[in-house]
């Protein structure tokens, strides 16, 4: 009896710790999402979408760049099929990211859990989760990843709703400056990994170069996919057996 309550207590402490940690590491995502989500809300409203429609788009599509593109294409009265195809291209990178993430958590998180995490995967929540992949070994790892994903998701949906309702509430100069936030988040995640293993920098620079060159010849969506795949491929040679 005592042992069981002791176990339960330990479990709930672990759960609490994972939630706390999850919120901590996703605050930078929220900070980056707020101005972008507000701007989306404003733009979508200008594109003629109602508050309900734009909030639903954020809740069900949940893909920043694609939503901006969608709103823009609606303004220019593009057809539904054009918008949907363009969205697919721009978001195909999530397939690669998801495959990478799912492969690493596969042994510890069941199918249902993986699907629920996948639904909320974005560039940012993937980046933060993937660089805290060691949490997958924890019994409560799922809670950690779900916290990251939900924090980002709720910020995005709420932010777009507020943008639609309130309009510009952040001074323009500040919201422009916050455009650096997500890049700084990516850099802040990457640098410690490079410090730990200098070989990582080769993967990074290769991915950057391929993305840059490819973006001259194809759409942004495919260029990022190509940069990610080819950059990652160098890991096959660089990484030893351990992973």
């Amino acid at each position: 009896m005592n042992e069981i309550t002791e176990d339960l207590k330990k479990d709930s402490t672990r759960t609490y710790e994972m939630i706390k940690l999850g919120v901590q590491v996703s605050i930078p995502i929220a900070l980056g999402y707020i101005p972008v989500a507000l701007t989306f809300g404003i733009l979508a409203k200008q594109a003629g979408m109602s508050i309900l429609e734009l909030t639903m788009m954020s809740a069900f599509v949940y893909a920043g760049a694609s939503q901006f593109m969608g709103a823009n294409m609606i303004i220019h009265s593009a057809s539904a099929i054009e918008i949907i195809v363009a969205t697919f291209v721009l978001n195909f990178r999530h397939f690669i990211m998801s495959l990478s993430f799912m492969n690493q958590v596969q042994t510890n998180i069941g199918t249902k859990g993986r699907v629920s995490l996948g639904l909320g995967l974005t560039d940012e929540s993937f980046a933060v989760s993937a660089l805290h992949i060691d949490k997958a070994d924890n019994k409560k790892g799922y809670i950690f990843f779900m916290t990251v994903i939900l924090t980002a998701y709720l910020t995005w949906v709420l932010g777009s709703f507020l943008g639609g309702v309130l309009g510009d509430i952040i001074p323009e100069h500040l919201s422009n400056s916050m455009g650096i936030a997500l890049y700084a988040l990516f850099i802040g995640l990457l640098v410690p990994s490079i410090k730990k293993d200098i070989k990582v920098i080769i993967i990074v620079i290769l991915a950057m170069a391929v993305n840059y060159i490819a973006s001259q010849y194809m759409s942004e969506g495919w260029a990022i996919v190509l940069g990610t795949l080819i950059g990652g491929l160098s890991g096959v040679v660089l990484f030893k057996e351990e992973k």
């Binding site: 690493q104 992949i133 990994s193």
Partner: peptide, 9 residues
């Protein structure tokens, strides 16, 4: 396992 770094780049 190298994809996250490449994607970040």
């Amino acid at each position: 396992s190298a994809i996250p770094y490449a994607a970040l780049g």
